[in-house]
Nucleic acid binder design. Sequence first.
RNA 1: GCCCCCGUAUCCCAAUCGGUAGAGGAAGUCGCCUUAAAAGCGACGAGGUGUGGGUUCGAGUCCCACCGGGGGCACCA
Length: 839
Amino acid sequence: MSEQGTDSTVTGTGEAATYDVRSVEQKWQRVWAELDPFRADDAAVTEGRREKRYALTMFPYPSGDLHMGHAEVFALHDVIARYWRFRGYEVLNPMGWDSFGLPAENAAIRNDTHPATYTYANIETQLASMKHYGLSFDWSRRLHTSDPEYYRWTQWLFLKLREQGLAYRKNSPVNWCPQDQTVLANEQVLADGTCERCGAEVTKKELTQWYFRTTHYAQELYDGLDALQDTWIGKVANAQRNWIGRSEGAHVSFDVEGHDPVTVFTTRPDTLFGTTFMVVAVDAKLADALVTDEHRAEFEAYRDDVRKATDIDRLATDRAKTGVFLGVHATNPLTGDRIPVWATDYVLADYGTGAVMGVPGGDQRDWEFATAFDLPIVRTTEPPADFEGEAYAGEGAAINSPAPGVESALDLNGLPVAEAKSATIAHLEQIAHGAGTVNFRLRDWLLSRQRYWGAPIPIVHCPACGEVAVPESELPVRLPELRGADLKPRGTSPLGAAREWVEVACPACGGPAERDTDTMDTFVDSSWYFFRFLSPNDDTQAFDPALAEAWGPVDFYLGGDEHAVLHLLYARFFTKALRDLGLITWDEPFTSYLSQGKVINNGRKMSKSLGNGIDLGAQLEQFGVDAVRLTLVFASPPEDNIDWADMSPTGSLRFLQRAWRLSGDVTSAPGTDASGGDVALRRVTHRTVAEAETLLESHRFNVVVARTMELVNATRKAIDSGPGGADPAVREAAEVVARLLSMVAPYVAEEMWDRLGHAPSVAQAAWPSVDPALLVAESVTAVVQVQGKVRARLEVAPDISAADLEALALADPVVVAAVDGREVRKVVVREPKLVNLVV
RNA sequence: GCCCCCGUAUCCCAAUCGGUAGAGGAAGUCGCCUUAAAAGCGACGAGGUGUGGGUUCGAGUCCCACCGGGGGCACCA
């Protein structure tokens, strides 16, 4: 490329040579743009010429420029992508933008512009920053979810899912954000009842909305996590399990006077003998159906009170139990007892059946309720002798099941919980009053949003035909051009006000009809973007199934913890739906998943209000891309948080300069055979490469950097106080350093590779091969322990036999002294490293 | 309350199968360089692994309990 030294500043005596960070960055960006070395070749994979690897990192939302968080995730991701290329895989490493969403809309209202203005300007800014940041993306596959060519297929997928019964519309109470003026999915409401996006308190509103039937795959989504346990970062699989919330139990059917039987879900069928009342969610239709005329006034007054209470009040778990008697009685199917039916707000209408059997002896909530309203309490599990609580929900023998002296067709007394459960379920099935079942916490995914900047739902509502799908040939349903004040939230979608857009002929009957005026949750867009990357410019289909077969599933996915349940669960749902549509054969989208930690500053999250934000641009300006990337990768294991205050980009730059200096001190010619070189250095070099392979496979990138630093130190020593820069082993070592470094600090690595006489790019170099003979040390230090205490160290051959090592150890004078004539009862030999004598 | 993860040197962190606790970096100290300082270059030390038990010839690593930190779920029956 360039002749040695022109881009480098070599300064005077006593001071070390350094390279000029900025000019090196400019130079290699030009070279990469020409070479385009990161383009993925579909044919290489479909024709089986190379093994594929699909590396994916979450595409950003285009709000402003990249920040430190992006810098970390992209730096980590690039290590894997570049490593796989080195190892000869055909690597698909695409990038795009998740470019629909509220911030663009809010900016458009503020500035009286179109959301696209903000969106596409930011995309260009981020694109330039990514290129400067030296990332090895295949830019030919760039996509934006807000492009009509993209959302056309989002709409198409919506229609396909609807055909499968996986998308449907229903009226129900939904989460409503008064700030954003839109509904939210359950997943977008935080545990404290506030909106995850804007922090406003979420309220409930009765609306007809579109849903994806995620619950159809609840069991499969849950079970699939087992197979991902070892390749997904553990906490994410755990979070998904908690979110899906599988619980095993039983449905129990209670006869109710004057009504159809009422079914409840319980995880403790064994406590049925202790059921002394039934409680129904006050806001469930069931409560309204059960209440007698005599009790209706009281019931409705209570219900009004409950409705006025906010979610935040409801979520306070230490609140006193409240409720009203509905005036009806049910029959306990085991005891035949008449039990009262109450309405309460501690039972949830949309979990299980909205009704619960009250077992005060075994459930603390029921205990509190029974105490408050003077209902009978029966223990059905024997608590330990020292138990001091109220309700007892632990292990123990069944008691009072039935009560002493009572005849019963089912007798659980004395049985442990698990056996009592299965015996009860068997009995309920026999008397046709229940069955074993599994219940999930997971709800269907509410996807309608009353906002503008998203994919319109491709449905037409016709007074004659009802819901009619927009024909595929008419996709995409494009957004009307709205800007500024037209986008202001007003409780209905801004699309509703665009009358000329809304009013269409019904695709079925041709009569006057109206478009659906909601847009899809932007999580729909990102649930399938990794499919679109396979054939991003295909205008005949969402993606090419043959390429999905060739490239899928994603081999490595890196992203943020904040998407542990939302995006990852939705993407898994879409993948299963696409499988059932026959478009793909595999059913988990991400073979391995890693989430990186956050970049914080001084122990705290970076934020404007704290004034502790670190500006990525300023860091890059000061230290250069390579040093910033190196700092982020080296800081800690990828999944841990990085406190920027603990880090030293100065130290990183110092190291990079030292590494670069090696390339100037190599005096042997390119291509020199290393086999005659200094063996000690060659051992370090080959051991480093071998270890780097293992570390990279297990994503321990920080340790790879540390090993590279060791190799640099060893090479420096060899040059200054060893065999010198002419030794071929020094060249070999420097060339390994360049390649290891290229995964983290591509600019300086290119510069080194160039100075070492290679062209055109280290990104196209081959991975160094490891000579196994050099992995075996010449001699190793064996430790001799007496009673576990180190008494002697012996230099021995690595292939020493156990017997020889034992003999050597027993003959050592220090060891003999330590044994001090005592009887050696046992000798543990782990050749070649250890001997332990037990006396 | 239930479920996961993590506690190693002043700090960030290493330590394949249980086998000499220390690789790397930062800070520090001391040199060199400098009129001086910073930067740069070179050298150096440092703890017995959160606590208490257990298993083992041998535990940072495995088991139990507790303490501390982080995360997920949560009136989910």
